[in-house]
Design a protein around this nucleic acid. Sequence first.
DNA 1: CCAATCCGACAACGGAAGTTGTCACACTTA
DNA 2: TAAGTGTGACAACTTCCGTTGTCGGATTGG
Lengths: 210, 210
Amino acid sequence: MASASTRPYGGVSAEERRAKRRTQLIEAGVDLLGTEGWQATTVRALCSRAGLTERYFYESFADRDALVVAVFDDVAGRAAVVVLSATQEAPHDERERSRAAIGAFVELLTGDPRLGRILLLEALGNEALERRRREALQVFAKLIADQAREFYGEGAPEPVDAMLTSTALVGALAELLIAWLDGSLDVPRQRLVDHCAELFVAAAGVRSSR
Amino acid sequence: MASASTRPYGGVSAEERRAKRRTQLIEAGVDLLGTEGWQATTVRALCSRAGLTERYFYESFADRDALVVAVFDDVAGRAAVVVLSATQEAPHDERERSRAAIGAFVELLTGDPRLGRILLLEALGNEALERRRREALQVFAKLIADQAREFYGEGAPEPVDAMLTSTALVGALAELLIAWLDGSLDVPRQRLVDHCAELFVAAAGVRSSR
DNA sequence: CCAATCCGACAACGGAAGTTGTCACACTTA
DNA sequence: TAAGTGTGACAACTTCCGTTGTCGGATTGG
């Protein structure tokens, strides 16, 4: 059993080395999970791609699930940053903000297809990831719901309505993106983004309470 | 290699025996896939649950993927029947038909939770199933789009709009159901169905073309 | 320079699963 | 009744993977 490193090596501190190895493994995970999928993301393959040996895998992660969850968090975090900053820079208008947020998300995924596969597809194939996905999704749904409240003010749908609608919108966006990235929906990117934004606007006022 | 059976046995023809074994395997598949999931759906477990031996698995299916696809088709077929008949019996009204269709689907899934897990969750975890899911989804989206056209007549959204919207709606429904069946969305069933129907109505007129 | 530590390559153990083969027994049919 | 075929239980072979251990060589601190 390897005791925890303490000394510097190659001019780098023990902690830095550990952190770097962890990063390398996560990057290898993004690559493998995003291109060849979950079943190809084995410990051996990860280490080989990261240029490390198996021992260092267990130094940073308890098992495959832990690594894959870390990968998901990494990618989801990137997406959150991109989407939130795009939203805040957009004009204070419901349609414009929807477009900005969705557009930024789509651009991220088209810029690096691995991310789309991880967030939209692989996240559903694994039990541990599925939990994480659900959590992330709820956070996003809540963000959407809050945004909607901001524009509706007094007459905003009540919280239950808002949660139902925003969950639906997240699912709608995911499904559209899966189909579009897959080539099943042959429309220009801008059209896709516009249509999503219109759906968001149309759905925002929906309520099932009376 | 077992040569194909030709004689009757136990008073049953060879073809009937084959068909029965296949059915048993599919039922075992529904049960395993719908309760313990894909990773537990091994050839040994399937055969054990079906009361058959491994040899008979390969008599009807080339591999696990083939079995699981057959299971999905079986379940999706049942869902299609239920939803279509509910739709046709409902009053000729947009909101009413949406409610009837969604309500029937939800009832099917709550009546047998295995079906929901198969259609909504497990279908995303496997490559072969994912393809099948996409196909089934397109068929459903097309049905929705056609329904919408029926109510809008002249002023109906053009086909691309309709396809985008209906794909989104299928995704929205799936996501809502996943969250609801999972307990993350704590609302009565009727409220869920009503909200979905309202979303359908609200989305039906959305278009991104100008 | 030397002992301690870290590194990389890789073997080894154990388990799980797909797939094929063996064998004894039940049933059919000539 | 006897030969041939279907059936069920189960072993065996193979492959793959998670996980842990070994070992020689590189780097560090004294």
